[in-house]
């Protein structure tokens, strides 16, 4: 049996109070085990991104519990949650969210430095960018990269954190279909190589179909959960 990495129980996230409150998540139960490959499927506003943020400790649920390896995230302070993200949970955002004033190399090196402290990040950063096929673009700023290249740098940056769980928010949302395919191929390839659990939030059923499991969200609730493979 696989080790359970993250678990949501009755997780709720609401913005505002009273009748005008918006429920981004409304009692979500979800378990993610090591090396899982999971798609969060749903339309815009269904709660996919919020659920990713809750899993990563970026957003605290207003109700319910979220655990990381059996430890409630609510018991961790901001520094501890940051340390958890630095060494256990990687992110790939929809637009890449690269640090705009850092080159591709520096984006990856920064994540390595955050993750590994004093260790020299140069070799690791170069190796990771080589892995995603961007050896030629080490010194390019994000504004000088194409959308696909930026996403590959984002993947390399996430890998620099040696994640056990990689959370990807619409990783192909801003890409054309061919580039999106290549990015997904890359994600699955590195998952196989590094063995982390992969959670991809998407509105695209085809993308979801590439994952082992799919959880469909609607209005902050789990509509269905099924194995896709």
């Amino acid at each position: 049996m696989k080790e359970v990495l993250a678990e949501c129980r009755g997780a709720k996230v609401a913005y505002g109070d009273g009748e005008s409150a918006v429920h981004a998540l409304d009692g979500v139960d979800l378990t993610i085990a090591a090396q899982d490959s999971l798609a969060l499927l749903g339309r815009s506003g269904s709660g996919k991104t919020t659920l990713l943020h809750v899993l990563g400790g970026l957003v605290e649920p207003t109700a319910g519990a979220v655990e990381w390896r059996g430890e409630p995230l609510a018991t961790l302070d901001a520094a501890a949650r940051a340390a958890l993200r630095a060494c256990g949970i990687g992110y790939v955002f929809q637009g890449g969210n690269l640090l705009t004033h850092f080159t591709a190399f520096e984006n990856v090196a920064f994540a390595t430095r955050v993750s590994s402290g004093d260790a020299d990040p140069v070799l690791a950063a170069v190796a990771l960018l080589e892995l995603v096929g961007l050896t030629e673009k080490l010194d390019h700023l994000p504004a000088e990269l194409s959308g696909g290249e930026a996403q590959r740098v984002a993947i390399a940056r996430a890998l620099a954190q040696r994640p056990q769980l990689l959370l990807c928010d619409e990783p192909t949302g801003h890409l054309d279909s061919d580039t999106g395919e290549r990015v997904l191929d890359l994600l699955q390839a590195v998952q196989r190589e590094f063995g982390f659990a992969l959670v991809v939030a998407t509105h695209d059923a085809d993308v979801a179909a590439r994952m082992e499991r799919s959880v469909e969200l609607h209005d902050g609730r789990v509509l269905s959960a099924q194995a896709t493979v």
């Binding site: 990563g56 970026l58 901001a78 520094a79 940051a82 340390a83 958890l84 993200r85 630095a86 060494c87 992110y91 955002f93 969210n97 690269l98 640090l99 705009t100 004033h101 920064f110 994540a111 955050v114 993750s115 940056r157 954190q161």
Partner: peptide
Amino acid sequence: RQEFATMAALGARLRE
């Protein structure tokens, strides 16, 4: 703020 939020999401500490 978005850069700083990204850094925080990557696990950078507040003082960093």
